[in-house]
Design a protein around this nucleic acid. Sequence first.
DNA 1: AGCACGCCGACT
DNA 2: GTCGGCGTGCTC
Length: 870
Amino acid sequence: METGNLVAKVIVDVPAKDTDRTFDYLIPDSMRPWIEPGSRVAVPFGKRTVQAFVISVVPAEEPPKYRMRAIQELLDLVPPLSPDLVELGKWMSERYACNQIMALQVMIPTALKGKAERYISIAEQHAFANASPVHAIQDPDDLQRTMQSDQGEELEWALLTDDGMSDPTERRIVSFIQEKEQVPLQQLSRRFPEEAEVIKALLRRGVLQESQVIKDKLSKKTMKAVDLAISIDKASAALEKFSAKAQRQREVLAFLLERSEFLPLPLKEVLTSLSVSAATVKALEDKGYVITEDVEVFRDPYRGRRFKPTEPLPLTSEQQSVYERIVRQLDMREQGAYLLHGVTGSGKTEVYLQSIQRCISQNRQAIVLVPEISLTPQMVERFKGRFGDQVAVMHSRLSGGERYDEWRKIREGRVKVAIGARSAVFAPFRELGLIIMDEEHETSYKQEETPKYHARDVAIRRAHQHGAVVILGSATPSLESYYAARSQSNDEFAPLLLEMPTRALGNTLPEVHIMDMREELRAGNRSMFSRALHQGIAERLERKEQTVLLLNRRGHSTFVMCRSCGYVAGCPHCDISLTYHQRSNNLRCHYCGYSEPVPQICPECGSEHIRYFGTGTQRVEEELAKLFPGIRVVRMDVDTTSEKNAHEKLLKQFRDKKADVLLGTQMVAKGLDFPDVTLVGVITADSALNLPDFRAAEKTFQLLTQVAGRAGRHQLPGEVFVQSYTPEHYSVIHASRHDYASFVREELKHRRNLHYPPYCRLILVTFSHEQLPVLVRLAENYSATLQGRARQRGWFGNMDRLTSDVLDILGPVASPISRIKNRYRFQCMIKWRGNIDAIGLAQQVADEMAESAQAQKLLISLDVDPQMLM
DNA sequence: AGCACGCCGACT
DNA sequence: GTCGGCGTGCTC
């Protein structure tokens, strides 16, 4: 047993540059057995109490170098982070140029984001020695008597001012606090809104004292419930003399009385049992008979749902050889990464499922990452069906509390498999054996907010820590991954390529027809459907088969535009158009929150021809109805899926064949699998191609390939119609031939010529400042300084040079969104390659600039390996 | 990030 | 003369 004092090195929850380092705190003896790396604690920090994470525990130096304070409180019995996650946080902070606290915070559910709550109590020297916890003092006389007792004497003195008088306001406040012993400051200032000064004075004089406690913001799930506001006897009496006019109210009251031992009752139950409206209950509430309140309910997002158990399917020989390779790696218990390139329908999921089974049987756990958009009930069902309640599911639609509960199942070892979006890569398993990332190429794996991490890189890093296996699966792997796998560079983390080129059920990939929309126009067809697609839909209607229509439009906001003059409603503080919100019927800026009512006439030209432009699905729906009277369409876009479970309902409707056409944006392209879909139509294949993004061709190819894979997955053969204005574009051509390899060959050529990933890496540096001239000067200054430092280190500045260590900096130029919250924005693009610490240098120069006096209000943000360049 | 200390304008 | 504006400096 250690004899000396122990010190905890902690990272405090203060996201600033100055505090992005460890601070030392003494560990009180009582906490010694509990404090370990990953523990969450409350520590005094300056005048405040803040939350902090323990990074390491070390013996205290003798003699101490500086005054050290002690940990105030241990916040969890089981540390929310494991030592490997703490280490991962350090790595992330360097890799993604963020504060360590940001990296640690993103690993745990927001329910554990503790914030200090301030409490006010009577200062110890004045408090009663044996005060009862609830000592109700109602009137001033009562208070007077209490004050005169021996125990209250000290407090009585303290309340007297210099001239021997005492202030009635002070007395009111003090007695209020005495009643409750301890009052949250917030509550106190709500109760005495005008008396802030008096409270401050009492604190200064030491009559009152303040303490701070870290409170988790556990969002409890609640449900509206009804309770009696009066006693049962009184309610029974009231029931007798209810007027005949309020018959419904009488029924409600009687219902509650009947079930008085079960109160409070869920509002929903009352409403449905009696088939009364909420207004009836509201009327009773207004009369003071009942109250409605929020009560907590137990959370399990999948409670009551049965999942049909599934057995492992026999594997095809392709699946078998991939599976065996992974099993070999798992059995070695060594870190290994695989890129599983399997065409749509090749049965990747079954390979995942059986690999997980193997991993579990080794007594290790597995993480399955899927893009948020494809974390559909169908997907969850497949995993729950195979592994039952050994699976925890985490996705953004869960409430904070549900998420917290699922996360606890993982940490407490009650599940073996975690399936979720991006952040599930941090699932706190102890013995991680396998991490699967499905649809590896999806850009949603990159977090766009700080910390701007990429789940793929984090997964590989975590697997390395645990000696675990990573499987990156996709029908259209990202060029970065594919290039790394194929070139098998000296990168020790480069994945090994595994291929599954044929469909598991043996059916062929659907035939893809490209429709040249320019030709349609020349032939006099001005409709949004080509003649062939039109006919295809008609045939499906006749044969009672189904059609999926995809509108490839990037961005998912609805904006308001004037058809006469082209005016678009924009935010006055940000260089961005306002988004239309149906629910509140107003326009909002999603960067700064500014909102305004929807204009009835155009503020520019006065025209009344002002209307919403959204994803355009509505227009397609209208045209379908016109062309095919009686056609049943399920439309999926942001407007129809914003409600909870809307997604699921719409898909079920389609699956049950209650609709002929499923129409939607990107969200219909992913992972859906309907047996009767024999036609897939892409209305506009190339709308993303003109975007200023070097990945435009790659994204177009991926989308077309994914959507083409939706057709004919079962017995019925499938057909795909792709409408395009640039049918000669290589991404369209190769996608139509299901030819990934040729697409990659051509795309890599372009990337090499233009010096883009995977031939180099990128760092996007964004600067913002209130004054444009100052901003431009500082951004130029940054660019020049970085360029100079790189030269000093012997890194070449020209990507054309065939040397290995290169750093080139482009810009500054105005950012695509050139102003946000009244701050102008400029950006630089750093391109680099080789064995150099480009990220470290870019960060270092940014730090130095932020410190210099002239750059006071400058903000610099780095995005390492950005996905969005806009 | 907060919360303090510290130095210059509009008011009792 | 004071209250209070927010510039800058520190937190084990």
